[in-house]
């Protein structure tokens, strides 16, 4: 059986929105985002609430842009990095819309878009929201050290993006970006245990998903304008390109880019190996990539959402980091 899901009714991107924090709002993509908050507190009392507010704003902005028939999507697919997916739950609390919480770590943007597209394509709903968020401070608190702790980070470490993104997926519509195919990834674990080198843990998962997608759809990397990975960063991107070259005889280097490298200025913003987190692929795709597709600069884009499915607890117990990569194809 094939893993690529062919969506025969071409579900469409009705709208997308991206809201970001301070550092991202100072980065090279600042003009593409819908909202750039001047500080990461987002007028809330805790980092967790701040992340929820960001996600709420992203969904709200996307819903308003889509001008749906009954003002709300029929279902919301959302997830984030925090325990029990709290950011998502609290963000959708005020919407009064059926909610399906997802956990795909940093792959959640591609994962939720894939779920929303399948639901719309199957005719189960007319429109669905796909959303995700991450916040530098809440992620540091849960996965690493308290913010004010003075430590040094490894050059391979990445900065969690403070940002939330939302897509509204709806039925086929002329002149818009549509989703012809998606692929749900498999869990891949190559035995990487270094939690400050997530790119290395995720690169094989991305490689496996990309190779399978190209094989099943009988396409080549050159058939796409862009193969965009979620948050492999500088280290992971290099590992992915070499992985595909050496093990799958596929060269994606001419069409590959990574959201973690696009979102920050790698030379001046002191982000080590680049950006990471659910919000990373989310805000880059929802703003920059969608804009370029609407302008027809890109016509075929593969979003490869990469996620390191790690838990700090299990990592301390000596387990390696399993990873996953979901793929969404956008066409114009």
């Amino acid at each position: 059986m094939k893993n690529v899901v062919e969506l025969k009714n071409s579900p469409c991107v009705l709208s997308s929105a991206a809201c970001v924090g301070k550092t991202e709002g100072e980065g090279p993509l600042k003009d593409y985002f819908d909202v750039c908050y001047p500080d990461d507190g987002i007028n809330q009392t805790s980092w967790e609430n701040a992340e929820s507010q960001l996600l709420h704003d992203a969904i709200d902005t996307a819903v308003n842009k889509a001008s749906l028939e009954n003002n709300n999507p029929d279902i919301i697919f959302a997830g984030d990095l925090l325990n029990q997916c709290t950011s998502s739950t609290y963000a959708v609390r005020s919407f009064n819309v059926p909610f399906a919480g997802l956990f795909g770590a940093c792959s959640t943007m591609a994962f939720s878009i894939a779920m929303a597209s399948v639901f719309v394509d199957g005719g189960y709903v007319k429109s669905a929201a796909a959303a995700t968020s991450s916040h530098f401070c809440s992620a540091e608190k849960q996965f690493r050290y308290p913010l004010e702790y003075g430590g040094q980070r490894a050059p391979s470490a990445q900065r969690t993006v403070t940002g939330a993104a939302s897509f509204i997926i709806g039925e086929k519509k002329r002149n818009s970006v549509f989703i012809p195919r998606v692929l749900f990834g498999k869990v891949v674990d190559f035995g990487i245990t270094d939690t400050s080198n997530m790119g290395a843990a995720m690169a094989p998962a991305a490689g496996e998903s990309i190779a399978q997608f190209l094989k099943e759809t009988n396409t080549k990397p050159e058939d796409y304008d862009l193969i965009l990975t979620g948050d492999l960063g500088a280290v992971g991107s290099r590992l992915l390109i070499d992985y595909l070259k050496e093990r799958k005889n596929t060269d994606i280097s001419s069409v590959h880019d990574d959201c973690g490298l696009l979102i920050y200025d790698m030379d001046t913003q002191d982000v080590h190996s680049g950006g990471s987190g659910c919000g990373c692929s989310g805000v880059v795709t929802a703003s920059y990539i969608m804009k370029k597709m609407q302008e027809k600069e890109y016509k075929k884009v593969l979003l490869v959402g990469t996620g390191a499915l790690m838990s700090p607890l299990i990592s301390l117990q000596g387990e390696s980091i399993p990873a996953i990569a979901h793929i969404v194809e956008f066409n114009r």
Partner: peptide, 18 residues
């Protein structure tokens, strides 16, 4: 899962040191 030795070597080579 068995750690992939070849890949681990590659990671070591590519990852910059402090």
């Amino acid at each position: 899962p068995k750690p992939d030795k070849e890949y681990s070597e590659k990671v070591k080579k590519v990852t910059p040191n402090s």
